[in-house]
Design a protein around this nucleic acid. Structure first.
Length: 773
RNA sequence: GGGCAUUUAGCUCAACUGGUUAGAGCACCUCGUUGACGUCGAGGAGGUUAUAGGUUCGAUUCCUAUAGUGCCCACCA
């Protein structure tokens, strides 16, 4: 019943205690604190204790969790530990993420390219096997880190996002959605890498400054009978070659120079194509001529203007017209002399034809930002392509209502605005991705497919059936089937994989279904994650949960702030402001590291992780350690029998003061814990323990413990009275026990160590983890 | 450009959602410390709560405007 001399040694204690927790399987919901053993899952389910569950956001499997992930673990764990002490059966479910695009990128960059291997020299299967192995090896390290930090999750249930059982659930949802007509194949603008001959994602592109030219071109205005009136509208463009794909001219509605032209029509020079003049708030009056030619097929901005216009003007919709093919030749409604030739070759001819027709007014030099493919360095060509979409109309409002009705509460509350803004402005969600590392779509074609551009610049998908190309009909089972297994040897699976969020959006129920725990733990209690993925991830989980189960996936959303580096800047290795976890653990211990995340922090607020703060909480741990040594030392030395004190049986005013102090602190901290105010809970504990309990209450109690002597003369004054001494030490032990429990969710290791040495009474558990709050 | 935050001591942040004298840690100054203290304690200095208005008996807190900073989204024809 005593603690070793000297300062607290976190390294030694943490290993010891972690082993104790893991061996006793305290982390499992099946652990019964009454029987002190693991019971069957069925018995756990029948246990009337209230369930509490958190599905831990899975970190990337390819690497070790960074201090941002660990921040999340600290919060998830604190909630879990608090719930356990409140007598709930607790499940914290851990997992690891394959991290689609990023996971594939890291593997290609750090492994394949270092070995000089090109991704495309491997078959898809080979590639998948290699990256799978790579992830399996690395995820063990991640798991170890989670344990080290004290995350009290049920590690037997740790699961990978590409686990076959999860895959089956995720893909079944795709099939259900397809059968309910919520998934469709549509046409959308994409980034085309002409060198790799593949669609690439936004973050596989980089911007580069290049010198280019901007041309001013006159478009003749026509009247209602499509006759040229002699008026013109002048646009500025850097890409005259896309003019055959123009489907409108846009001006800003507040631009008085053009109000008389809005709603009229004009002619694309060198063609017979008539296009309307529309308005868009995105057009800047000051840039160029203030008139923008809209080429939705070859400019993301124009594509956006088109979708916005069409949404607001149902009766006057404009369309797209794709005039650049995947081999960079011109296609579609293009004058025949240019058709089928590379646009770069044709451009000078187009310019000279414009000049001779007196359409070209001027050309100027200009520095522009061009999109470049990161890997091949090719100029990215925006073109139209078929993609798979989810129609979100049916799920939008129910998900908004979850928050409005209070079924789901977002902490901090001000993030609700962000959430509503996102949900209300959400458009149909494009879910196909050109990757190999992920969930390949369960779509099967009866033959090879090919995308073509027709004479009007429209994208059409053809399928080859019995050596004949026909237009793909995605509603016909003769052309296309959506199912898990291949329908037969001649059927060809869709190349694309699903967007990562399509699978991670199903993570809460998928993981619980795999474990057959839906009945007990769904909806889960809290979703704890960083505020930066509220929109991308949290909203998706709610959408899928509504679609599949018609209920919310979790009751509360706690969004922690992002961890910044030692200099207060965004943490990044290149800036050198990152504290490595191993170093923090070695030098300060896990408890101080965890404490940094909580202390004085509030939901959604970012904060810096500094050595100064680690030092501060290392000192705090040491203070706790020393106070405990003091209390336990006196307890042992004086041979005290511990009993829980009651206020009205206390004789000393001093004892009453301590008793009331504990009651007061406990009430405050409980309130903070229940309202997700972990910053206030932890700082209250820090301040009260150190500056009130230690500095004042313990100090003033010493008269009851020691022989009093005159300071100057050394003359004897009084001897401690045994009854007073007994009561004082007893109340110290009581206070220390309560503090140990209250501090445990935040700093679990040192509190467990101290708890082991404290005298127990009826109702106490052998581990502080299951001791009653 | 749109959205969301944020601005409090030299630095890093609190202030429990309108109520005594705005609090901690680090740094600084002065004392003290041989019975818990890899240190700690007592005390001190340091603030017109970004600026300007407004609401209120009362504003760090609510409202408006301005300026600075950060993040997310969209981006130059």
């Amino acid at each position: 019943m005593s603690l070793p001399n000297g300062p607290y040694n976190p390294q030694q204690n943490e290993d010891e205690i972690l082993k104790y927790w893991l061996e006793n399987k305290f982390y499992k919901p099946e652990y019964s604190p009454v029987k002190d053993q693991v019971v069957s899952t069925e018995e756990m389910k029948a246990d009337p204790r209230e369930p509490f569950s958190i599905i831990c956001p899975p970190p990337n499997a390819y690497g070790r969790p960074h201090l941002g992930n660990i921040s999340g673990y600290a919060y998830q764990d604190a909630m879990g530990r608090y719930a356990r002490m409140k007598g709930k059966k607790v499940l914290l479910l851990p997992g690891k993420d394959h991290a689609g695009l990023e996971g594939e990128g890291v593997f290609v960059r750090d492994i394949l390219e270092k070995k000089g291997v090109d991704k495309f020299s491997l078959s898809r299967e080979e590639f998948y096997n290699q990256i799978w192995k790579f992830n399996m090896q690395n995820k063990e390290l991640a798991l170890k880190d989670e344990q080290t930090i004290g995350l009290s999750a049920d590690f037997d249930r740790d699961i990978f996002t590409l686990d076959p059982k999860i895959v089956e659930i995720v893909l079944s949802t795709f099939i259900e959605m397809f059968n309910q007509n919520m998934i469709y194949k549509g046409v959308r603008i994409v980034n085309w890498d002409p060198k790799a001959q593949s669609v690439i994602a936004d973050n596989q592109c980089v911007r580069e400054e290049r010198k280019g030219k901007i041309y001013r071109i006159k478009y003749p205005i026509v009247d209602d009978n499509n006759q040229i009136t002699g008026e013109f509208i002048t646009v500025a463009t850097t890409r005259p070659e896309t003019m055959f794909g123009d489907t409108a001219i846009a001006v800003n509605s507040t631009d008085e120079r053009y109000t008389n032209l809005v709603g009229r029509k004009c002619l694309i020079p060198l063609t017979n194509t008539i296009i309307p003049i529309i308005t868009s708030p995105r057009v800047e009056k000051e840039f160029g001529t203030g008139c923008l030619k809209i080429t939705p097929a070859h400019s993301l901005d124009d594509f956006t203007i088109m979708t916005e216009w069409n949404q607001a003007n149902q009766a006057n919709q404009i369309s797209y017209c794709n005039v650049i093919n995947k081999d960079l030749t011109l296609v579609g409604p293009v004058p025949s002399k240019y058709l089928g030739r590379k646009y770069t070759d044709v451009l000078p001819e187009i310019l000279s034809d414009l000049k001779s027709g007196e359409y070209l007014i001027s050309e100027e030099e200009l520095v522009q930002n061009i999109l470049i493919a990161e890997r091949t360095k090719a100029i990215v060509e925006p073109i139209m392509s078929s993609q798979w979409f989810i129609d979100i109309e049916k799920i939008r409002q129910p998900v908004i209502d979850m928050v409005k009705n209070g079924d789901v509460t977002i902490h901090p509350k001000n993030m609700e605005a962000k959430f509503f803004y996102w949900m209300e402005n959400l458009r149909d969600w494009a879910i196909s991705r050109t990757l190999w590392w992920g969930y390949r779509m369960p779509v099967w074609y009866a033959g090879p497919i090919e995308e073509r551009i027709d004479n009007n610049g429209k994208v059409e998908t053809f399928i080859n059936l019995n050596n004949e190309w026909v237009v793909l009909d995605s509603t016909s089972e003769n052309h296309l089937k959506v199912q898990l297994e291949s329908p037969g040897t001649n059927w060809i699976q869709e190349e694309s994989v699903l967007d990562t969020w399509f699978s991670s959006g199903q993570w809460p129920y998928a993981t619980l279904m795999v474990n057959n725990l839906m009945d007990t733990f769904y909806p889960t209690s809290v979703m704890e994650t960083g505020y930066d993925i509220l929109e991308n991830w949290v909203s998706r989980m709610m959408m899928f949960s509504y679609f599949k189960l018609k209920k919310e996936p979790f009751k509360d959303i706690y969004l922690h702030g992002l961890v910044k580096g030692t200099d207060g800047q965004k943490m990044s290795k290149s800036k050198g402001n990152v504290i490595p976890m191993d170093q923090a653990k070695e030098k300060y211990g896990v408890d101080p590291l965890r404490m940094v995340y909580f202390y004085q922090n509030s939901a959604g607020a970012s904060y810096a992780l500094t050595y100064e703060k680690l030092e501060m909480f290392k000192n705090f741990n040491n203070k706790i350690w020393n106070a405990s040594k003091f209390v336990l030392g006196n307890f042992e030395k004086n041979n005290i029998q511990y009993s829980i004190p009651a206020l009205d049986s206390l004789r000393l005013e001093n004892s009453k003061e301590i008793f009331n102090h504990i009651t007061d602190v406990k009430q405050k901290v409980t309130k903070f814990m229940d309202t997700f105010k972990f910053g206030l809970a932890s700082s209250t504990l820090y301040d009260e323990f150190w500056h009130n309990f230690c500095d004042k209450l313990i100090e003033q109690s010493k008269v009851y413990l020691y022989t009093q002597k005159n300071k100057d003369t050394g003359e004897f004054i009084s001897e401690p009275k045994p009854e007073e001494l007994q009561e004082t030490v007893n109340i110290f032990v009581y206070a220390l026990k309560e503090y140990t429990k209250m501090l445990h969710p935040f700093i679990p290791f040192i509190t467990e160590k101290i708890w082991q040495e404290l005298p127990k009474v009826e109702g106490d558990h052998k581990t502080v983890m299951y001791s009653k709050w």
